[in-house]
Simulated scan of single mutants.
Amino acid sequence: MKVGITGGIGSGKSTICNIFKLLGVPVFEADVVAKQLLDSDSQIKSGLIHLFGEGIYMDNGSVNRKKLANIIFNDNIQLEKMNKMVHPVVREKFNDWVDKQNHKYIIHEAAILFESGFYKMMDFNILVSAEKRQRIERVKKRDAVSEAQVLERMNRQWTDEEKRKLASIEIINDNKRLIIPEIIEIDKKLKKYGKIW
């Protein structure tokens, strides 16, 4: 069984995934894999150079993340072009990875699970959410960025309202509720019944 986990920036989806990992659940981190591919996949590298010029890669062969972020976060067309190059390779890597797993279920974690259409490959999809103010403060602290920069990133993602329409369930990660018992309960249901509800 495949379970997708997503959430807006600062929602704490990585924290939720880490708890699943502690329960022995294999987690595929799509965003981490995508970042690695920018540095390692020759087809993607040549595609990025074609799109953005030689200067998109540094002398050591790794992508200039700051330069790339400045381009794609200010130009949705360029972002879309890059995603069209990267997403099929991530999907391929995910399918190869799934074939090697032997757990009752696996987790696919991705920031843009719904936006990319990856959610259609999942049996269930979990949305991790938190209040906007809380998310802003988390990201400011984590990434040492300004509130304006956080809001800019948030505005490029789907809202929780949009994501809720496609999610099987929602975990509210607001530091008020106990999320560990909730995750243990989800884990038990998936292992015993093969479904979340």
Rank of each mutant, 00 (worst) to 15 (best):
M1P: 09
G4H: 08
I5H: 06
I5E: 05
G7Y: 00
G7D: 00
G8N: 01
G8C: 00
I9V: 08
G10D: 00
S11A: 09
G12W: 01
K13Q: 00
S14F: 01
T15N: 10
C17R: 07
K21L: 14
K21Q: 15
K21V: 13
L23Q: 03
G24M: 07
G24N: 07
P26E: 13
P26H: 12
V27I: 05
F28I: 07
E29C: 09
A30K: 06
D31E: 08
D31K: 06
V32Q: 13
V33T: 07
V33F: 04
A34Q: 06
K35N: 05
K35Q: 08
Q36S: 11
Q36Y: 07
L37S: 05
L37G: 06
L38H: 04
L38G: 05
D41T: 05
Q43C: 13
I44C: 11
K45F: 05
G47M: 01
G47V: 01
G47K: 00
G53T: 07
G53E: 07
G55N: 12
I56V: 11
M58H: 04
M58T: 03
N60C: 10
S62M: 14
S62N: 15
R65I: 02
K66T: 14
K66M: 13
L68D: 01
L68P: 02
A69E: 00
I71Q: 06
F73N: 03
D75A: 05
N76C: 12
I77T: 10
Q78A: 07
E80M: 14
E80L: 15
E80G: 15
M85G: 03
V86M: 05
H87Y: 13
V89R: 13
V90I: 14
R91Q: 14
E92R: 15
E92D: 15
K93G: 11
K93C: 14
F94P: 10
N95D: 15
D96V: 09
W97N: 04
V98A: 12
V98G: 07
D99Y: 12
D99T: 14
N102T: 13
K104T: 15
Y105W: 02
Y105K: 02
I106M: 07
A110Q: 06
L113F: 02
E115T: 01
Y119H: 11
K120V: 10
M121A: 15
M121S: 15
M122W: 02
M122A: 02
F124D: 04
F124W: 04
I126N: 01
L127S: 08
L127I: 09
K132C: 01
Q134F: 03
Q134D: 05
R138C: 06
V139G: 03
V139H: 04
K141C: 12
R142M: 01
D143C: 02
D143P: 04
V145Q: 01
V145N: 00
S146Q: 00
E147K: 01
A148C: 06
M154Y: 00
R156T: 08
W158I: 01
W158F: 07
T159L: 00
T159H: 00
E161A: 13
E161G: 05
K163F: 00
K165H: 06
L166M: 12
S168Q: 11
S168R: 10
I171Y: 04
I172D: 08
N173G: 10
N173P: 11
K176A: 11
L178P: 09
L178M: 12
I180S: 12
P181M: 12
I186R: 09
D187I: 10
L190Y: 00
K191F: 09
K191E: 12
K195H: 03
I196S: 02
W197C: 13
W197Q: 14
